[in-house]
């Protein structure tokens, strides 16, 4: 009898201890913190992983020793090369008015007025200058995404002038403002002295020293590309504007007085 009571008592103690143990470890488990969650670890995707040749399903620690961790089905011995676009300097370029209009409209949608530094059309996170330069120094294209080329020399502190989109935690905050500001629109085209003459440069050259950033070189804006990108000395033929460049401000062009011709 005594023995039986002892047995029952001991089993109770063990049961309580076991429950206590599980309650104990259950209590301190941290909740998901939300800092590093990404769509990839979502439950839905986890289910999908079993059918996906590119994903390896996570296993419990106990199963690690037996789990196959080798290459997936789609693993290949050599890395696939990303398709790179070859740029043909001498390819014939026929900019169309429609493309030019479309490009101008996209350009304008990213500026408060013509001449304003464009906004950054994507969110950035603790971005250093190096991060910006990695895509925007020479420009790049990936799929339908295009990183434009810097039109000016290397300058530090990119976000000094270029306003980004809202930081990730505040992307859903309504940031609309009501304003009646109307910015200066972009010029449609440079003026030509006569049909066939090279057009003048209709904008300031300040901060736009690299003409090919917009006008060619494989990263230019459709419809605004130069038809002759192999010619590298742009201002040889296209005249800048002294007043737009804040170079020499003069109301009238100074000239010598007219000839004095004696009247009869």
């Amino acid at each position: 009898m005594n023995k039986r009571i002892t047995t029952i008592f001991l089993s109770l103690v063990i049961a309580v201890a076991a429950i206590g143990y599980f309650v104990g470890i259950g209590d301190g488990v941290p909740l998901p913190d939300g800092f590093h969650d990404s769509p990839l670890v979502d439950h839905e995707l986890k289910h999908a992983a079993s059918g996906d040749a590119k994903l390896i399903e996570a296993v419990s620690y106990a199963e690690i020793a037996d789990a196959e961790m080798g290459p997936t089905e789609s693993w290949q011995l050599t890395a696939k090369t990303l398709p790179t676009q070859t740029y043909d300097l001498f390819a014939e370029i026929k900019p169309s008015e429609e493309e030019k209009l479309a490009s101008s409209q996209t350009r304008s949608s990213r500026r408060a007025y013509n001449g304003a530094p464009p906004i950054i059309p994507h969110a950035i996170e603790n971005t250093t200058d190096a991060a910006c330069y990695s895509c925007h120094s020479n420009g790049m294209k990936m799929g339908s995404l295009k990183a434009s080329v810097m039109s000016h020399q290397f300058l530090a502190n990119c976000t000094q002038c270029h306003a980004p989109m809202a930081p990730p935690p505040f992307q859903n905050v309504d940031a609309r403002v009501s304003t009646t500001f109307v910015g200066l629109p972009a010029p449609k085209a440079g003026k030509r002295a006569f049909p066939g003459a090279p057009p003048t440069i209709p904008h300031s050259q300040w901060m736009r020293e690299n003409c090919l950033a917009c006008h060619g070189g494989g990263n230019g804006w459709a419809g605004m590309e130069s038809t002759h990108p192999w010619r590298s000395n742009c201002t040889q033929c296209h005249a800048p504007s002294a007043s737009l460049d804040q170079a020499i401000v003069s109301e009238t062009i100074p000239m010598l007085p007219p000839l004095e011709v004696a009247k009869e």
């Binding site: 590119k54 996209t106 949608s109 799929g143």
Partner: peptide, 13 residues
């Protein structure tokens, strides 16, 4: 006037 990409699913493989 513009079409921009917000998300692309690559699952050709």
């Amino acid at each position: 006037i513009d079409v921009a990409v917000a998300f692309v699913g690559f699952d050709d493989g």
